[in-house]
Design a protein around this nucleic acid. Structure first.
Lengths: 206, 206
DNA sequence: TATGGATGGAACGGATCCGTCTCGACCACA
DNA sequence: TGTGGTCGAGACGGATCCGTTCCATCCATA
């Protein structure tokens, strides 16, 4: 956006000319917009270039193909689901986690691109790496919630963490992304309540 | 498959010629196979016809376009998630429901096509009707589970049914379809346990 | 058995996309 | 002020797809 830094492309010899950061970012934005409109499998780099006001060469000069382009694009937005502080109880932490999730799932591009990533992974496995990276930050944050509750004594150390991590986001994902219904503040408590009970129930009587 | 019945297309005048039921079914099968491979948005009717060993005219004579074709195709497979009998308790019913869900989510075509439907709905709304019909049978069956529990006295009549219906399938969908992990028998109990606790918790102290 | 009519398969023109390549213009460095 | 590399733009040959049209075949009726 600001000053153009010397890029990695400029190296030994002498001459100049640097890949424009503005153009690269415009290409990323155009990619996401087209991705949201048409889905990855029907994504046309020709349209992406046109939308960014560039030629196709600008794309092929930077990335070898659609997948690597998408991969780096996802990387740049960094997916920071910033950590939140300890809320004092499992249920309060769950509610905070759900609120974070909701703010992510409300983003219009996320609403279209995220389901498309999952659909694409199901049929091609080439998107696996991207999907994995997207899941990672969320999973890390979720794990913290569980570990804090164990440290607090709210959950036993013998808890099946794998399944607990499934219960943490699933209800919000289902409601907002699969059934596509909005999630008003008034109902956040109920989801946190149910989710907390589910996780606690995993620990009791096998 | 068997004898060819006089079709609805043969009517008043005199002449004959009937649409072949075999070909129609072959077209459906080819559609699903291509859908699973490429996704709906990148679906080519040309490939579908070729895969069915037919010409494109065979498709365009039957359906006006891709969407209506897909719509009737989904209709024919009927989506019967046959009702199961009362298992005696909410948790047992939940487990039975999860088992049914698992058998559906294990089908290789379902694993690829269902996420694609959700991705498509997110960006075009034209698939809404199809998605809605797919959801309907599952929702009906889930509602029965909840109502039976209320009749049994396990859940209060004042329960928030909307959210209870979210909790019923969400953990299984998340595990099998989003994170794409298998679900062995040994873990079915834990999911049923957690899900049941979540639903019961919706009723208590607001 | 003769015949009318819809059938299925193939070919059509127009459109889009891919990935490459070639321009003149431009800009940052030496 | 040179000079080398990137810039946007566009053309390319080949491939694929759309939706329609053509034509020989086959079938149910008369």
């Amino acid at each position: 956006m600001e000053r153009k830094r010397s890029d990695q492309k400029t190296r030994a010899p002498s001459g100049a000319a640097v890949q424009s950061v503005e153009l690269t970012e415009a290409l990323y934005r155009a990619l996401f917009a087209e991705w949201a409109e048409h889905g990855f499998s029907a994504l046309s780099l020709e349209r992406v270039a046109a939308r960014a006001g560039a030629g196709k060469a600008a794309i092929y000069r930077r990335w070898p193909g659609k997948l690597q382009f998408a991969d780096e694009a996802i990387n740049t937005i960094a997916l920071r689901m910033a950590a939140f502080e300890d809320k004092g109880s499992l249920e309060a932490d769950v509610r905070a986690f759900h609120r974070r999730l909701r703010s992510v799932f409300r983003h219009p591009l996320v609403r279209r691109i995220l389901p498309d990533i999952y659909a694409e992974v199901a049929r091609s496995e080439a998107m696996e790496a991207i999907s994995e990276r997207v899941a990672q930050t969320r999973r890390d944050e979720a794990a913290k919630v569980i570990e804090r509750a164990i440290a607090r004594g709210e959950l036993p150390g013998a808890l099946d963490r794998e399944i607990a991590l499934d219960f943490l986001p699933c209800s919000i994902y289902w409601r907002m992304m699969v059934t596509r219904r909005s999630l008003p503040d008034a109902q956040l408590d109920l989801y946190a309540q149910g989710t907390t009970a589910a996780i606690k129930a995993l620990a009791s009587a096998p």
